[in-house]
Amino acid sequence: MTANGQAARVSSSQTLHEWEMVQRAQKFDQAALTWLYQLYYPKVYNYAFVHLSNVQLAEDVASDVMLKVLESLPGYRLRGVPFAAWVFRIARNRIIDLHRRRKRRGEVDLDAVTTAAEDDNPQGLAEQALDRNEIQAALVHLTEEQRQVIVLKFIEGFDNGSIARVMGRSEGAVKSLQHRALLSLRRLLTAGEA
């Protein structure tokens, strides 16, 4: 097992504390639920905002995810899956559902503008970057999996093992995705500067 994988295991006192709090939250202990909400709502909001670039949608997603976490909490079992990875898997699924629903309806995402595959016009990207944070604008143009890796690793600070659990992929696949995602991001940012 790699160092990252080791880190994902329930080994630190921090994680043990988290596990204790989660167990209390599973019994709907008020203090534990408050802890859970205060810790994860901002994280999920940040995660959703980076994906959606829309304050309102991110708020709605964060709120929905927290409710889903609450409702699914009794079914959570440790079994080596860190609680954070479990929460973010719910968040990821919620965002994927949101995108799929619009795609199925043939709608262009209001917030995500267009995807890289659909729009390789560097000029359009450059114009967009003028208005919005360059990186966030470029992230929109990555594939969903590439974006997940970038956000989870570099913004949320997850290790490869946890990312693998959130995404349902192997750690090797995560490393490979990470490489491709950074390459794409670099290319998009360079195009934006051109």
Binding site: Y41, P42, Y45, N46, F49, V50, A58, E59, A62, N133, I135, Q136, I150, F154, I155, H179, L182, L183, L185, R186, L189
Partner: peptide, 16 residues
């Protein structure tokens, strides 16, 4: 690639 990764890490946290 490392430079881009550092840029992303510096992305400010969006606060609700």
């Amino acid at each position: 690639l490392l430079s881009v990764a550092q840029q992303v890490r510096r992305l400010p946290v969006a606060r609700p």
